[in-house]
Amino acid sequence: MSTHYTKDHEWIRVDGDVATIGITAYAQEQLGDVVFVELPEVGKVVAAGAEAAVVESVKAASDVFAPVAGTVVEVNAALPDAPETVNSDPEGAGWFMKIKLDGAPAGLMDRAAYDAYLATL
């Protein structure tokens, strides 16, 4: 199992051919109090970089992009009724969706590279 990151502040945990996706601690901090999450339908086919979910804080709405291409095989059904989980445990219980990968994910950062990227912001 390996965890990767994007410049859009999403994390991707790859286990075999399934990637679990969420937003990073930095992203939830920037968003502030999350009050609404909209998840994709299971079975939806997504291209890398396509809009896949929506996360809204008190002040702002943001798109969550699919960082990898594939098919949505599971969503975090607890999240729409408890969107604050994105704030309290963004890189754990606050996960958004699982995508069955079409191929090997590309263009992602490891933790050290993401931390270095954060340091430039």
Partner: peptide, 12 residues
């Protein structure tokens, strides 16, 4: 995720 800081009502 899109940058939320550009899309707030108060941060004009």
């Amino acid at each position: 995720m899109t940058n939320p800081s550009v899309n707030t009502d108060v941060a004009e």
